[in-house]
């Protein structure tokens, strides 16, 4: 079972975090720091697996890939297939690439929600939902479309009447 999926940049700043276990804020930050500490000191020509007994409360393995300025890190239990997860990371990056066109760190920074929703189409509750990149893109597009459609419908509906929203703001002037 996958325990978390992290995207961290070369300087240790988290860019996308997704935990499949419920942790407190501090525990999450510690996991992120630990993961970064483990991967950042590794050169690129080393293998993509890290073992650390203290990681995530034990019985975990860390599998990562380093692309340009970003580390894509998966922490999962030891029963998960190593190469399978490595492929999964590859699929995710490919999917991002398809959805953003030449994805770079900035895309993920400014489109976190999108990156997160794409991940949700791939992993649910720590189990792998879909491994086909094209299928993931399609599913995300469907989601996006239905969000936009609803938005359109509701704005059409509201076009005539008042929006009813409260407009006074303490920060207005």
């Amino acid at each position: 079972m996958i325990r978390c999926f992290l995207v961290i940049n070369n300087f240790g700043k988290p860019r996308l975090i997704k935990f499949y276990e419920r942790l407190s804020n501090e525990e999450r930050q510690k996991a992120i720091e630990d993961a970064y500490r483990l991967v950042s000191k590794r050169l690129d020509d080393l293998c993509n697996f890290v073992e650390d007994d203290n990681l995530f409360g034990g019985d975990s393995q860390l599998i990562y890939r380093h692309f340009a300025t970003l580390y894509f890190i998966v922490i999962c239990d030891k029963a998960e297939s190593e190469l399978g997860i490595l492929d999964l990371i590859q699929v995710y990056v490919e999917t991002l690439d398809k959805s953003f066109e030449n994805v770079c760190e900035l895309d993920i920074i400014f489109n976190q929600q999108k990156a997160g929703l794409i991940l949700d189409q791939m992993i649910t509750g720590g189990l792998v939902l879909e491994t086909n990149s094209q299928e993931i893109v399609t599913k995300y597009k469907e989601l996006e479309r239905s969000m936009k459609q609803q938005e359109k419908e509701s704005s059409n509906k509201n076009a005539g009447g008042t929006t009813g929203s409260y407009n006074k703001s303490p920060r207005a002037f």
Partner: peptide, 9 residues
């Protein structure tokens, strides 16, 4: 190195 590591594992 990935395959090597897994081999040893």
């Amino acid at each position: 190195p990935n395959l090597k590591y897994l081999g040893f594992k």
